[in-house]
Every structure is written in structure tokens, then in C-alpha cells.
């Protein structure tokens, strides 16, 4: 059944339904999202569709965004913190075309932020939705290859094996050496992969006022963290969770608090550090 609102908008590309996906698909994804929100951290299977870009480029995130986006929304898309990378630009243009939404690069103005590998530095607020692109939704996958077994482990909350991997990291490196995709416990119940964000961003997930939705296109899983839900990074009592720190500050804006990228800028190996979040950096200059 066609969406009644479509006929009112002459600018709509007639070849596509509003938001690219057909209404039945959007409904199916919204159901999965509702279930995911109701059971924080639980991976809900959904019938992922073919999208006009390859797996690994954000098909899961795009489907989630397409299912929740409306004309009143303002969309921001970031890739590794930046608004101006290929992936971010093309996804933003995709939605401007198929959903006629306003787009922005400013975190504060956005209602939906689709992201890959970062959480914006600017604190999120009530009503904002953060959509993550997730390559491997199963946090136990590298420890336990059988899907039937990982599901049982989640169902029974048997998470000793996750702790074993952290133990192994300390035994080998003297500290928990995992720096991204650092496992978290959601609402004291499910262990969740926060997608490959740096562990620097993990504290931002905890009790965030924004809704967090995670979409994995290849693995066809959706999971969520509702606003104000406790999200704890796993650790040991004598090796507590710590985020990355830098002795340098951002070359462009001078920030000492944001996540910094190290760049090599010439053939002699000159390095400089800049904020990975371009919007945050520009707003401070």
C-alpha cells in the first residue's frame, strides 16, 4: 500500500518509495527496533534487504535510518568522526534525495545521526537518535564460533568467556589492550558490542539521553540502548576500564579533551594530531 503522503511531494523521485525501502520492509524493521528497545542489548534478527551499496559500507545503519526517518528530521552522517568523507557524504546525499530531509553537519541541530566508528564529542540530548553501523554484532563471535552456543550464552547470561578474553589480554600485554569495539554490559543483563567505536567513546554510551540504535546489515541484526540506560565497560577490579589519553592537543583547535587522530603529513615523517570529530573541531576554531 503506497504511503498517502508521497503524492503530495512533487520533488519525490517517483521510482522510489519514501525513504527508499518499501512500507512493509520499514514496518518489519520498526518492529525489530521496538523489540530491541524493549530488551536493551539483545540482538533482534530482521530481514535485511539489499541496499544500493556494498555490505560493510553501512547497509545496516542505512536500513535503520530509512525505517525511522521522516520529513521533519534533520540528518547528520559521520564516518570516523568526519562529515566530509566519501561514505558520510554519499549516505547523506542518499537520504536527502530519497527522503527529502534537511541535512546538517552540526551535532546539535541533528535529530538523527548515523555514525560509523565514533560518537560525537558534543553531548547528545533528549530526542536525538544515534544510528550505528555494525560489522559484527556478536561480541562473543571471536571466542565462540557457533551461533547456537553464543545464543545460549546470552540467554543464560554466561559471560565467563568474555572475561577470559580480557584476562588473556592482561596476561599478554600487561593491560587490557583492546582499544575499539570494547565489550559493554547493557542494563546489567546483555553483553553488547558497541560497534568499532574507540573505547574512548564507551563512557558516552552510559546513561546517554539519546536513543542508540545499532544495525548490522550483513549479519541482519538490530539492537538498541534506550535513553538513560546503564552501559558498563567490562574490566577487572585491579585493572579498571580506562580510556585513551594523549599528551598532545589538537593542532587546529587546541582541544585536549577530544579523540585525536595522528596524521603523517610529509615524507620526512612529520606528525600532527587533529580532532577526529570535524564538527566539534570547527566549532572551536
Amino acid at each position: 500500500m503506497p504511503d498517502a503522503t508521497i503524492q503530495d511531494t512533487p520533488s519525490q523521485d517517483a521510482a522510489y518509495n519514501y525513504g527508499y525501502l518499501d512500507e512493509q520492509t520499514k514496518r518489519m524493521i520498526r518492529r525489530a527496533i521496538l523489540k530491541a528497545v524493549a530488551v536493551p542489548g539483545y540482538q533482534v534478527p530482521f530481514g535485511g534487504r539489499e541496499m544500493p551499496l556494498p555490505y560493510g559500507w553501512g547497509t545496516g545503519g542505512i536500513q535503520v535510518t530509512a525505517a525511522i526517518i521522516g520529513r521533519e528530521d534533520t540528518l547528520k552522517v559521520i564516518d570516523q568522526g568526519a562529515d566530509d568523507t566519501t561514505n558520510a557524504v554519499s549516505i547523506r546525499r542518499f537520504f536527502a534525495r530519497v527522503a527529502q530531509v534537511a541535512t546538517t553537519t552540526h551535532t546539535k541541530e541533528a535529530t538523527i545521526i548515523q555514525t560509523r566508528h565514533r560518537v560525537p564529542e558534543t553531548p547528545l540530548t533528549d530526542g536525538q537518535i544515534l544510528v550505528f553501523q555494525v560489522p559484527i554484532p556478536e561480541p562473543l563471535r571471536m571466542l565462540e564460533p557457533r551461533e547456537t552456543e553464543t545464543r545460549t550464552l546470552h540467554a543464560l547470561s554466561e559471560y565467563g568467556v568474555m572475561q577470559v578474553s580480557l584476562y588473556e589480554s592482561i596476561a599478554r600485554h600487561g593491560r587490557i589492550a583492546k582499544t575499539y569495539n570494547y565489550p559493554v554490559m547493557v542494563n546489567g543483563r546483555y553483553i553488547m558490542s558497541p560497534s568499532p567505536i574507540p573505547k574512548f567513546d564507551n563512557p558516552k554510551l552510559d546513561r546517554s539521553p539519546a536513543l542508540q540504535l545499532y544495525g548490522a546489515g550483513r549479519e541482519k541484526r538490530i539492537y538498541a540502548v534506550p535513553p538513560h540506560t546503564p552501559v558498563n565497560s567490562l574490566d577487572f577490579d585491579d585493572h579498571p576500564f580506562e580510556v585513551e589519553t594523549w599528551t598532545e592537543s589538537c593542532e587546529l583547535c587546541g582541544s585536549t579533551e577530544s579523540f585525536l587522530d595522528e596524521m603523517i603529513v610529509d615524507d620526512t615523517g612529520k606528525r600532527l594530531f587533529v580532532c577526529s570529530d570535524t564538527d566539534y573541531c570547527e566549532s572551536r576554531r
Binding site: 559471560y159 565467563g160 568467556v161 572475561q163 577470559v164 584476562y167 574490566d235 577487572f236 577490579d237 585493572h239
Partner: peptide
């Protein structure tokens, strides 16, 4: 250590 961690030991 796995069994210890499985029943909640969290001190490395």
C-alpha cells in the same frame, strides 16, 4: 581461571 570468572571473580 575461566570457571572462577564464570561465577563472578573479577580480580585479576
Amino acid at each position: 581461571g575461566e570457571r572462577l570468572m564464570a561465577v563472578g571473580a573479577r580480580h585479576y
